[in-house]
């Protein structure tokens, strides 16, 4: 009975939605407003004035950089949410030593062997974000995955060394903080928050600012992913 009701409700919701998407400008046509209005500007001028050859990077870090600033903060919010809901007094101490499931030698060896390559790949993805597809978010995810792999295969203590307690809270906030730092630099240089210098002589600085943001997002994203994993594992 409930299911039938839900299905009726969904059909009532779906019909106008389908009508609405049918009424949108035709999919894939080059005369779409999505293509001709704002995007046309990005495609035309992006590579010259925004500091990165990859137009997607131009658009997320320069033209609409403030959105990404917010997006990075959303990621930090999820970290704070997990910590706020899960952290307990002395959780680690209270937890009985979990019976160690022995990991096969082969797995340990392969993980140790591959770890440096994964790390280098992550750094490559982060640093190449302004030229080719990739960037801080993607590279950060790879780094975070590396941490999780190390934590599972080589043990929690081994992994903890990768993320020392001292700078940890700063690393977790690295994404928003580098963003704000670069934004304030832009404020000094151009008079607008997240402004990038437009003179051709300062093109190197533009690219450098974008790379710094990418690194910040990558490091911050990896630290958030790793700490969320660590907390959830301890729970």
């Amino acid at each position: 009975m409930k299911k039938a009701l839900v299905i009726v409700l969904l059909i009532v919701a779906a019909v106008p939605l389908v009508a609405a998407v049918a009424g949108l400008p035709p999919h894939g046509s080059p005369s779409n407003p999505t293509y001709t209005h704002v995007s046309a500007y990005y495609l035309e001028h992006g590579a010259e004035e925004a500091g990165a050859e990859n137009i997607v990077t131009d658009m997320i870090l320069n033209y609409r950089g403030f959105d990404t600033n917010g997006e990075v903060t959303v990621i930090f919010t999820s970290l704070a949410a997990v910590f706020g809901v899960l952290l307990l007094t002395g959780a680690v101490a209270r937890k009985p030593a979990a019976p160690e499931i022995p990991v096969s030698m082969v797995v340990r060896f392969i993980a140790r062997l591959l770890a440096p390559f994964i790390a280098i790949f992550a750094v490559y993805v982060i640093l190449n974000g302004h030229i080719s597809p990739g960037g801080g978010f993607q590279g950060g995810t790879v780094l975070g995955a590396l941490y999780i792999t190390v934590s599972i295969v080589l043990g929690r203590d081994e992994a903890r060394r990768l993320l020392p307690r001292g700078p940890k809270p700063w690393l977790q906030a690295a994404g928003p903080l580098t963003f704000v730092g670069v934004g304030l630099l832009g404020l000094v240089l151009t008079g607008y928050y997240l402004g990038f210098p437009t003179t051709p002589a300062l093109a190197w600085l533009r690219t450098a600012m974008i790379v710094v943001i990418e690194i910040g997002i990558g490091v911050g994203g990896a630290a958030v992913l790793a700490s969320v994993y660590e907390t959830m594992e301890a729970d």
């Binding site: 495609l43 137009i55 997607v56 990077t57 131009d58 997320i60 990404t68």
Partner: peptide, 16 residues
């Protein structure tokens, strides 16, 4: 959109 300039690239805006 991130590849070399060519006419008729896909729009970059929605990706992010």
């Amino acid at each position: 959109p991130s590849w070399e300039p060519a006419p008729g690239r896909r729009t970059p805006t929605p990706y992010p």
